[in-house]
Write a protein that binds this DNA or RNA. Structure first.
Lengths: 239, 239
DNA sequence: TAGTGGTCTAGACCACAGC
DNA sequence: CTGTGGTCTAGACCACTAT
């Protein structure tokens, strides 16, 4: 038959996904259990194998199921909770809250890489790097000190940007399309210089995000962002 | 033709994905650009439409492309950098570092929900909740204070667990399969009680993760985890 | 109306696992 | 060997968009 079977508007593959998810959510199928084969589902739903395959394949991509060729399809081990922290451009973030964002560049220079930075950039010590130090305000209140080092090979025009108008993030997104990133989030007491720029007491708890991004196979940027702990949090949701 | 065309072992749909990704990575196709239609790709690669469709559909699911029925396929706006913090069972995490994990339960009680907690659990104030307070050690050094409230409806046997042997996380994963979670990460000074349990000075910067999980349509657990800021960080990578 | 994406079919060949 | 998943084809009907 080549007529559409869908009775309501829900696609068949989605209804099969819903069925499988329901069996798992209800507890009838537990972690590690064998799930009916594609052939079995084909018979059960009276649809073509391609349709069943799409349902099962997507659930596999979503890590709900695991498949082993020649063996079968199984309920995947309980996922750990993956919390997705979306690192947005701070200017957008502030504007999304209906507030006013302002950037205050405090430093914009070229400077040779020291030992540690050179290692991070996978370059020789002494290689010239661009360096910017910018304070971001929300409604006139400092909420982030952005201490950023940039690989000139990735963003040659970095120093000519007007960082009172655009953020380094915005410039780099254009100049060096993001390939990957590693990051860490930690809580550190504010050093004196950072505390001064944030208008807080030295030693105050800060939420510190460090990030190292790559572009075109090179390390493009290494940034440390300091946020007053009582004014800033990362939030998100899963599931 | 019904013979397999694959010359090397790479599936055709994957080669089409690689082609499309390459055009974008190289900058030849920019954000918002119209991507060749399925028909055009069918002609270009000499394959069936289903194969092209799979390639494009998967890239759409991966947010590399966006599609509008009747209109066309476009390069998706540059993704913001999404940092994936995987919240693992702290016991596993410590063991994965080759270190010794120990749990010290400090409190295990039933207690009526106050105003704030009742709101978080979407229950009436005064509803009984389970409450545990556990200190986790790594090699004898305290690295986390876990202050957890649990909905008895989701994990009725919670209070009978031996939390020196299994973590609340482990018990809840079994008792109340995770549906979803919201979380926040912030930096806060350690209050006196927490500081004592962590063996640090009151006011020391702590990395604080708060998480609220749901299971079976109910709020299952609300937890606050305190980590000494200088001993603990969240890390991860994207791309 | 022509072109786009969204879905589905009823076959097919293959690699691999388990008996 | 049989049964599993992995992939692919050459058609099809439909809903939607743009002109």
């Amino acid at each position: 038959m080549d007529e559409q079977i869908a009775q309501d508007s829900t696609p068949i593959f989605q209804r099969i996904k819903d069925y499988l998810l329901g069996e798992i959510a209800s507890g009838r199928w537990k972690e590690g259990d064998l799930v009916p084969s594609e052939q079995a589902l084909v018979r059960q739903f009276g649809v073509s194998r391609m349709t069943v395959n799409r349902a099962v394949r997507e659930l596999t991509a979503e890590q709900v199921l695991t498949r082993r060729q020649g063996s079968g399809t199984y309920v995947a081990p309980q996922k750990y909770q993956a919390t997705l922290v979306e690192i947005r451009n701070i200017a957008d973030e502030v504007r999304a809250r209906g507030h006013v964002h302002a950037s205050h560049p405090r430093l914009l220079e070229q400077s040779p890489a020291g030992e540690a930075l050179a290692r991070q950039f996978e370059l020789e010590p002494g290689t010239p790097l661009f360096h910017s130090l910018i304070v971001h305000d929300e409604n006139g209140q400092p909420i982030q000190v952005e201490d950023r080092w940039v690989n000139p090979a990735c963003a040659p025009a970095y120093l000519e940007q007007d960082f009172a108008r655009i953020t380094p993030n915005e410039h780099l997104m254009e100049a060096a399309p993001l390939q990957g990133a590693t990051y860490s989030i930690e809580a550190l007491p504010a050093p004196r210089e950072v505390a001064e720029m944030l208008g807080i007491a030295p030693g105050t708890s800060c939420l510190v995000l460090k990030r190292r991004t790559t572009s075109g196979g090179r390390v493009a940027s290494v940034v440390t962002m300091w946020h007053p702990g009582h004014l800033y949090k990362f939030t998100g949701s899963v599931g």
